[in-house]
Nucleic acid binder design. Structure first.
Length: 446
RNA sequence: CGGGGCGUAGCGCAGCCUGGUAGCGCGUCGGUUUUGGGUACCGAAGGUCACAAGUUCGAAUCUUGUCGCCCCGACCA
C-alpha cells in the first residue's frame, strides 16, 4: 500500500479526551474515531489490527474444537424473560421496541440464544460434546465508558458456549478453552494469566479471568511470580487428550493468582514466598466460566442419556474481548514514540521509507524493493509522501510497524538499505535482497 | 448514580471576569527554500463560537434551559 493513496489520518497532537496511552496512540495513529461515548468507528489501520486479532481467535478456537456460528446483535426479549435475565440485567441492557411495539434488545451476551439453538436440534448424548462460538458486536450500556476501546459500550467479543452430558465432560470442555486461551494470547505476544474469579452459585474452581499486566489496568491483581515465568510458546497440543489438557491447566493454575475480588491476603502470604509476591494492575481480556445447568434448565435444553433418562445439559461460556485486545496489546507494547506491534497482529508487516522522494534513483530503488517485498508475500506500507526524513520516521514509529526498511541516497551509493527493528531501534545495513529474505523468514508461519 | 470540568477552524488552545463585527500554534492549499529525525519564509482557504430562549442598540462573552463530551468515585455475567 502506498501511503499517498491510503487513509491514515495521523495526529501530531493528542486529542484532549484521551487519558490512557492506548487511547491516545489509537487516536494519534488514526486507528479509530469516536462516534459517541463508548462507540467507535474503526479506521483502516485500526480495522486491520482488529481483523488480525479476530483471525487468531478464530484459528485457535477451531483448533480447540469450537465451531463458528454467527448470531444476531438484536434479540427478542422473550428468551430473556424465560431465563429470568430480562428483569435481572438492569439498565446496562439496551432495550428497544420495533414498529409492532415488540420488546427487543441489543445483545449484551448470547447464552439464551445459543441455548435455544442447541435445544432445537440436540436431544441425545450422541449430540454432545459441542462447543459453538461466534465473534459478534455486543452492547452494554456502561454507566461510564472510558479508556477508548478498552471499555466501550459497543465492543467486539468472542463468546463460546459448550454443551456436555455431565460435569466431568464439561470440565474437559472448560479446560480445552483455558488451554486455547493460553495459546491465543501467547500468539499475540501477551502474557495473560488465568486468575481465579468469582464462580457464582455453582461453586468450585471453574471460573477464571485472564489478565494481562499493565500499569493502566483497572483491576488490582496478586500473583505468584512463578506463573509469570511460565511460557506456553508453541507446544504441541492434542485437545482430545484429557490428561495433557488437565496437566497444562494444573500448571497454570497451580500457583496463587487472584484479582481483588477473590484475593485473600492471608492465603497469599502463606502460599507465596515473599520474593515471589507480585502485586500489580491488570486488564481483563478473557473470561471462562462453567455454569452447569443455569440456562439449560429454564430454557429446556435437555438431552437423553444412554440409559434413556432426560437431563439438563451442562454448559460453560468463554469470552474474549476482541476489540479490547487492540488497546490491551498497545498498553503492553509501546514506548514514548508510539505503538510497537507484535508481528502477529501488526497492520502491515513492514514499512518502506523513501528518504528522497522525487529523486529518480531512490524512487526506482524503492519501487523495485516494494515489488519484491510484495512478491515475497509481505504486506508493505510504502511511505511515498514528499516529506522529510524526520516526519516519515516519526509516522512509522507512531503507527508501530515492527520493521522498517529505509532507502536513501547515502545507502544507495553502496547498494544497501537499512533494516530497522522497531522494538529496539537496532539497524542493519543490508542489501535489498537480504532485507526481503530476512523479513520473509521473520514472518514465515505467522 | 454522587461529585467536578469542558463544548470557539481538522487537532491543541486563547478570548468570556469588565458585551462592541473572532485570534494563536499545528495541520491543509499555493509558492520559494531545505533534504538522513516533525526545515525556514511568504501568501491563502477554512468558524451558524454545541443548541434554544431571554436581557441588551449590540451577546462567543451576561441569564435560564436543553444536548453532547471528559475526569474522580460507586458500578462492571
Amino acid at each position: 500500500m502506498r501511503l499517498t493513496r491510503y487513509f491514515l489520518p495521523v495526529l501530531k497532537e493528542t486529542p484532549a479526551e484521551a487519558q490512557i496511552v492506548s487511547h491516545r496512540l489509537m487516536l494519534r495513529a488514526g486507528m479509530v474515531r469516536q462516534a459517541s461515548a463508548g462507540i467507535y468507528s474503526w479506521l483502516p489501520l485500526g480495522y486491520k489490527v482488529l481483523r488480525r486479532i479476530e483471525e487468531i481467535v478464530h484459528q485457535e478456537q477451531q483448533r480447540a474444537g469450537a465451531i463458528p456460528v454467527l448470531m444476531p446483535t438484536i434479540q427478542s426479549a422473550d428468551l430473556w424473560r424465560q431465563s429470568g435475565r430480562y428483569d435481572d440485567y438492569g439498565p446496562e441492557m439496551l432495550r428497544i421496541t420495533d414498529r409492532h411495539d415488540r420488546d427487543m434488545l441489543y445483545g449484551p451476551t448470547n447464552e439464551e440464544q445459543i441455548t435455544e439453538i442447541f435445544q432445537a436440534y440436540c436431544s441425545s448424548y450422541r449430540d454432545v460434546p459441542k462447543n459453538l462460538y461466534h465473534i459478534q458486536w455486543k452492547f452494554r450500556d456502561e454507566v461510564r465508558p472510558r479508556f477508548g476501546v478498552m471499555r466501550g459500550r459497543e465492543f467486539l467479543m468472542k463468546d463460546a458456549y459448550s454443551f456436555d452430558l455431565d460435569k466431568a465432560s464439561a470440565i474437559h470442555s472448560y479446560n480445552q478453552m483455558m488451554v486455547s486461551y493460553l495459546r491465543t494470547f501467547g500468539r499475540m505476544g501477551l502474557k495473560a494469566v488465568p486468575m481465579r474469579a468469582e464462580s457464582g452459585p455453582i461453586g468450585g474452581d471453574y471460573a477464571h479471568e485472564f489478565l494481562i499486566l499493565a500499569e493502566t489496568g483497572e483491576t488490582q491483581v496478586f500473583v505468584d511470580s512463578e506463573l509469570l515465568d511460565l511460557n506456553f510458546q508453541d507446544r504441541e497440543i492434542d485437545y482430545h487428550d484429557q490428561a495433557q489438557i488437565q496437566a497444562i491447566c494444573d500448571e497454570w493454575t497451580g500457583a496463587y493468582a487472584r484479582t481483588d475480588d477473590t484475593h485473600d491476603q492471608a492465603v497469599f502470604e502463606v502460599e507465596v514466598p515473599k520474593e515471589r509476591q507480585v502485586t500489580a494492575r491488570g486488564i481483563e481480556v478473557g473470561h471462562i466460566f462453567y455454569f452447569g445447568t443455569k440456562y439449560s434448565e429454564p430454557l429446556g435444553a435437555m438431552i437423553a442419556t444412554p440409559e434413556g433418562e432426560r437431563v439438563a445439559v451442562h454448559s460453560g461460556s468463554y469470552g474474549i474481548g476482541v476489540s479490547r485486545l487492540v488497546g490491551g496489546i498497545i498498553e503492553a507494547s509501546h514506548d514514548d514514540k508510539g505503538i510497537i506491534w507484535p508481528e502477529s497482529v501488526t497492520p502491515f508487516d513492514v514499512g518502506l521509507v523513501n528518504l528522497k522522494q522525487g529523486d529518480a534513483e531512490t524512487d526506482a530503488a524503492c519501487e523495485a524493493l516494494y515489488g519484491q517485498l510484495k512478491a515475497a508475500g509481505l504486506d508493505v506500507l510504502y511511505d511515498d509522501r514528499d516529506e522529510r526524513a524526520g516526519a516519515k520516521f516519526a509516522t512509522m514509529e507512531l503507527i508501530g510497524l515492527p520493521w522498517r526498511v529505509t532507502i536513501g541516497p547515502r545507502g544507495l551509493q553502496s547498494g544497501t538499505a537499512e533494516l530497522t527493528w522497531r522494538r529496539t531501534g537496532e539497524t542493519h545495513e543490508v542489501s535489498p535482497e537480504d532485507a526481503v529474505s530476512r523479513l520473509a523468514e521473520t514472518y514465515r508461519g505467522l
